Amino acid sequence: MKSLKFVIATLLAATVSAPLLAQTVDVSGAWARATVQGQKASGAFMQLTAKEGTRLVAVATPVAGVAEVHEMKMEGDVMTMRAVQGGLELPAGKAVALSPSGYHVMLMDLKLPLRKDTTIPLTLVFKDAKGVESKKELLVPVATSAPMPGKP
């Protein structure tokens, strides 16, 4: 009987703790860049701070055919942008910026224009050091520029 209670308690703890992982990643300053009619790509930006080491392994949204974590950087005199392979490392307690000039969420094959003063749903998928996956659902405001600090 004791072992059955232990198994039930262990299963319950695993079930409850898995969804909580996403709560260990704080998201601040999230926004997506507004588009004009016919524009098929845009970006989403934010700051991620993980309480424990984890990785951002995927992004999804119904407003784009493709959503990926990209890195923009200079290689000599050429600016390059490419998808991050294997996920973006989020070291414990260190803020990682997703910004227009570095790592960012690339939204491609947009299904509709991203209009200023609206929001879009965005799902972030994380994987911890043990390989446990979790998701964080966001409603990201659409703007023409980054929001001012301290303002929603």
Results as ranks from 00 to 15, higher is better:
Met1Glu: 04
Lys2Met: 04
Lys5Asn: 12
Ile8Cys: 07
Ala9Asn: 06
Ala9Arg: 05
Ala9Trp: 05
Ala9Ser: 14
Leu11His: 01
Leu12Asp: 04
Leu12Arg: 03
Ala13Asp: 06
Val16Cys: 08
Val16Ser: 06
Ser17Phe: 13
Ala18Thr: 14
Ala18Glu: 03
Pro19Glu: 05
Leu20Gly: 11
Leu21Gln: 10
Ala22Cys: 03
Ala22Arg: 03
Ala22Trp: 01
Gln23Ser: 13
Thr24Glu: 15
Asp26Trp: 09
Val27Trp: 12
Ala30Lys: 13
Trp31Arg: 06
Val36Leu: 13
Ala41Phe: 04
Ala41Gln: 13
Gly43Ile: 09
Ala44Cys: 09
Phe45Cys: 03
Phe45Thr: 08
Gln47Cys: 09
Leu48Arg: 02
Thr49His: 04
Ala50Phe: 11
Ala50Ser: 13
Gly53Lys: 10
Arg55Gly: 03
Arg55Asn: 05
Leu56Lys: 03
Val57Phe: 00
Ala58His: 04
Val59Ala: 09
Ala60Thr: 12
Ala64Trp: 00
Ala64Val: 07
Gly65Tyr: 01
Gly65Gln: 11
Ala67His: 03
Glu68Lys: 05
Val69Asn: 06
His70Ala: 09
His70Met: 09
His70Lys: 07
Glu71Ile: 10
Met72His: 05
Lys73Glu: 11
Met74Glu: 10
Glu75Cys: 01
Asp77Val: 07
Val78Lys: 15
Thr80Gln: 13
Met81Trp: 07
Ala83Pro: 10
Gly86Cys: 09
Gly87Ser: 01
Glu89Asp: 14
Glu89Phe: 00
Leu90Phe: 02
Leu90Gln: 02
Leu90Tyr: 03
Gly93His: 09
Gly93Val: 07
Lys94Glu: 12
Lys94Trp: 05
Ser99Pro: 00
Gly102Val: 02
Tyr103Glu: 12
Tyr103Met: 02
Val105Trp: 00
Val105Ala: 08
Met106Gly: 15
Met108Gly: 11
Met108Arg: 14
Asp109Pro: 00
Lys111Pro: 08
Leu112Met: 14
Leu112Gln: 14
Leu114Ala: 08
Arg115Met: 15
Arg115Val: 14
Lys116Met: 12
Asp117His: 08
Ile120Ala: 06
Ile120Leu: 15
Ile120Thr: 14
Pro121Gly: 09
Leu122Tyr: 04
Thr123Ser: 14
Leu124Val: 05
Leu124Asn: 02
Val125Thr: 15
Val125Asn: 01
Lys127Leu: 06
Ala129Met: 12
Ala129Glu: 15
Gly131Tyr: 07
Val132Asp: 08
Lys136Phe: 01
Glu137Leu: 07
Glu137Gln: 15
Glu137Ala: 11
Glu137Asp: 13
Val140Glu: 02
Pro141Arg: 12
Pro141Gly: 08
Val142Ile: 14
Ala143Glu: 13
Ala143Gly: 12
Ala143Cys: 04
Thr144Leu: 11
Ser145Asn: 05
Met148Ala: 14
Met148Ser: 15
Gly150Phe: 00
Gly150Cys: 09
